[in-house]
Structure formats: structure tokens, C-alpha cells
């Protein structure tokens, strides 16, 4: 029997981490492929609703990554995002969703190896948390 593999939704900023993912590929760095990548202009574009939508659709983990603070293409987008994610993370923990399911990182377009390493780390952590079972929207549970 094959081992369970997690499904992870990854939301990457166009200017940095998406570039890092490209670079990792060009450098032929090996990393697992459990990700569905969504490219957004900036981490500041990410609404907590999107992260919830990923969990509702059955994602076992969500990974958000963007430019290092101070390097945002839009100057300050990721600073706002950082506060928003801090609150989101706190509330997810408060309702009892395993912290190992939600990951954040800052990876610049030059950091291909960091991307590959972080990818491995994220997957290992979501694997530990196991298959998601909370907040998954199925066929409406009504009469």
C-alpha cells in the first residue's frame, strides 16, 4: 500500500518566491511535489478567506511565501500581510487546527536552495499532522 501523501496549497508571491521556485527547478534541485502552486502579485493580496478556502477544499496544509520584509515589490505589501497572518494563525490555533498545517516563509528569487529546503520542511511537518479532518466542506450536511 502506498504511503499517504499530503495535499498542500502553496500561495507564492510573483516577484520573489515564485522566482525562487523557478530557480530551484532550473538548478535541478530535488524537492517533493505535493504542492499546488497559486501565483499572486504579492502576499499582501492574500486574504485569510483564501487560506480558509484551501482548508475547506480539503487541503492538508497551506504554505504562504513571499519577499523578505523590506524587499516587497510594492514596498510594504508583505508588512501588512505579516500582521494579517499573525492574527489568522492565532485564531486557527484557538479553534484547534494543528499549527503544523499552516506555514509561512520569506524566500527571495535568489534563494532557490532555500525554497527546496523549505518545501521539504513544510511537507514533513504536514505529514506529521496527518490527513486534514477539520473544516472540510463536503456535500451539504442537511436533510
Amino acid at each position: 500500500m502506498s504511503e499517504w501523501e499530503p495535499k498542500i496549497v502553496t500561495i507564492l508571491c510573483n516577484w520573489c518566491t515564485y522566482g525562487a521556485a523557478d530557480l530551484a527547478g532550473v538548478n535541478r534541485l530535488q524537492y517533493p511535489t505535493n504542492f499546488k502552486v497559486i501565483r499572486v502579485p504579492c502576499t499582501g493580496r492574500i486574504s485569510p478567506k483564501m487560506i480558509l478556502a484551501a482548508f475547506r477544499s480539503g487541503a492538508d496544509g497551506v504554505w504562504i511565501s513571499g519577499c523578505h520584509p523590506g524587499d516587497c515589490h510594492y514596498i510594504e505589501g508583505n508588512f501588512y500581510a505579516r500582521r494579517r497572518f499573525t492574527m489568522l494563525k492565532a485564531l486557527l490555533k484557538h479553534v484547534g487546527i494543528d499549527e503544523r498545517r499552516l506555514h509561512f516563509s520569506w524566500i527571495s528569487a535568489a534563494e532557490g536552495p532555500k525554497f527546496a529546503a523549505t518545501a521539504k520542511e513544510v511537507i514533513a511537518s504536514v505529514k506529521q499532522a496527518g490527513p486534514a479532518h477539520q473544516l472540510i466542506k463536503t456535500k451539504a450536511q442537511v436533510i
Binding site: P48, K49, R84, L91, V95, L135, T138, A140
Partner: peptide, 24 residues
């Protein structure tokens, strides 16, 4: 973002996001 029936997951999602929108 969230269904409108009395499905439990939808109800929990509503409360989660309602609260989050009040952060700060």
C-alpha cells in the same frame, strides 16, 4: 466563500471569518 445552509462546516466557517474580520 461559505455556503448559506445550516451545514456545520459552513456555520463554523462563518463564525471564524466573522471574528477574523474584527481583528484589531
Amino acid at each position: 466563500w461559505v455556503g448559506k445552509s445550516s451545514d456545520e462546516t459552513d456555520t463554523l466557517t462563518f463564525h471564524f471569518l466573522r471574528a477574523l474580520h474584527l481583528a484589531g
